[in-house]
Nucleic acid binder design. Structure first.
Length: 283
DNA sequence: GTTTAACCCTGCACGC
DNA sequence: TGCGTGCAGGGTTAAA
C-alpha cells in the first residue's frame, strides 16, 4: 500500500519523465473495474476528453494523492490515488498490457503512462483548481509531515486536543496526510511510544520524539525508494520494487526479536488494522 | 469526540 | 488438483 514515501518517489520520477510533456490521448479501457477507478466521473469521456492535448506543468503530492497540474483551456488537475495495489507505470506504446491496466495516457513524443490496479481501491479523476492552485476535493487533508507548515507547535497542539489512540491519529488523514499502516508502526517504534497511548497523555519530550521520528522514518524510506513488503505490490514508475523492506523495525515482524531489546514483536488489532509493536520498548 | 464495523475488490494462503 | 473460506488494506460512512 503506497504511503507518503512511495508516492513521493513516484512523484519525483514523474517530475523527471512527464513534466513539460503533452498528453496526446487518454483511454479508459474496457476492463471489468475501470469505471470503479474513475468513480467520480459518470462516463469514460469525462476523464478522457479534458486531458487530451493538455500539457503537464507540474506534479505535486498531497498526502498519498498525486496531483498533475495541466495547462489546457482551464486550470485542470489530474488527481491519482494508488489505493492499496495501484501502480503508475511508464511503458513503451507497443508493450503488452499488464492485467488490470485500467487507464492509459499516450504522450506526445512517445511512451505511455499506465494506471494498473488489481484491487481497485485506487482512483483517478480530473478536476479544476482554484486560484491558489488547490484541488477542492483534497481540502480536507491535513498538513504534510515533511512540509514546513507542520511545525512542532502545531503538532503538539493537535495532540493535546485529542484523546484518540496515537495509532489512529497518525493514520487520520485530516491530521497529517500521507501516513498509513506501515509507517505509523515504524514511527511509533522509533519514538518508543505504544500505539494505544492516548494523544493527550504525552509529555513535551515524548511529543518532540514523535515529531522527530515521523520525519526521520519518512525521509529514510524515501531514500530507500519505498517499501515493497510481503503483500506489497508497490512499484516505482519504472516497475522496480522499493528497498526499504529490510530496514523495517516492526512492521510484519510478529514473533521476531525486537532489534533493540530482543523481546518478541507483537501484533495487535485496532480499528480493523494490524499493528506491530515491541511491548517492552514502546510505552 | 471517539471507536467500531461494514463496504468496496482481488490475490493469496490455507484446509479439506 | 480444485474448491471454498478468510484475510489483507485505504478511505468513507454510518452506527454505537
Amino acid at each position: 500500500m503506497p504511503e507518503l514515501p512511495e508516492v513521493e518517489v513516484i512523484r519525483r520520477d514523474l517530475e523527471k519523465e512527464v513534466v513539460g510533456r503533452e498528453i496526446r490521448s487518454v483511454e479508459v479501457r474496457n476492463t471489468k473495474n475501470a469505471m470503479r477507478v474513475i468513480r467520480r466521473h459518470r462516463r469514460r469521456r469525462d476523464l478522457e476528453d479534458p486531458l487530451a492535448g493538455a500539457t503537464v506543468t507540474a506534479v505535486d503530492r498531497r498526502g498519498k494523492y498525486l496531483v498533475f497540474h495541466l495547462h489546457a483551456d482551464a486550470d485542470l488537475a489530474l488527481v491519482v490515488h494508488l489505493g492499496m495495489s495501484g501502480q503508475l507505470l511508464q511503458s513503451a506504446a507497443g508493450a503488452g498490457y499488464e492485467n488490470h491496466t485500467h487507464v492509459v495516457l499516450d504522450l506526445v513524443g512517445g511512451g505511455q503512462l499506465r494506471f494498473v490496479d488489481p484491487r481497485t481501491f485506487g482512483e483517478m479523476f480530473v478536476t479544476t483548481t482554484g486560484e491558489d492552485g488547490e484541488v477542492k476535493e483534497l481540502r480536507r487533508l491535513g498538513l504534510d509531515p515533511l512540509e514546513d507548515q507542520l511545525t512542532w507547535q502545531h503538532f503538539s497542539k493537535f495532540l493535546s486536543d485529542h484523546k484518540m489512540k496515537l495509532k489512529s491519529l497518525l493514520m487520520d488523514q485530516r491530521f497529517v496526510a500521507g501516513i498509513g499502516n506501515i509507517y505509523s508502526d515504524e514511527i511509533l517504534y522509533l519514538a518508543g511510544l505504544h500505539p494505544s497511548r492516548a494523544c493527550d497523555t504525552l509529555s513535551d519530550t515524548e511529543v518532540r520524539r514523535l515529531y522527530r521520528a515521523m520525519q526521520e522514518v519518512l525521509q529514510e524510506a524515501i531514500r530507500h525508494r519505498g517499501t515493497s513488503a510481503d503483500d506489497e505490490q508497490y512499484r516505482d514508475l519504472y516497475g522496480a520494487a522499493g528497498d526499504h523492506r529490510s530496514f523495517l523495525q516492526v512492521y510484519q515482524r510478529e514473533g521476531q526479536p525486537c532489534r533493540r531489546c530482543r523481546t518478541a514483536i507483537e501484533r495487535g488489532r485496532w480499528s480493523n488494522r494490524s499493528t506491530y509493536f515491541c511491548p517492552k520498548c514502546q510505552v
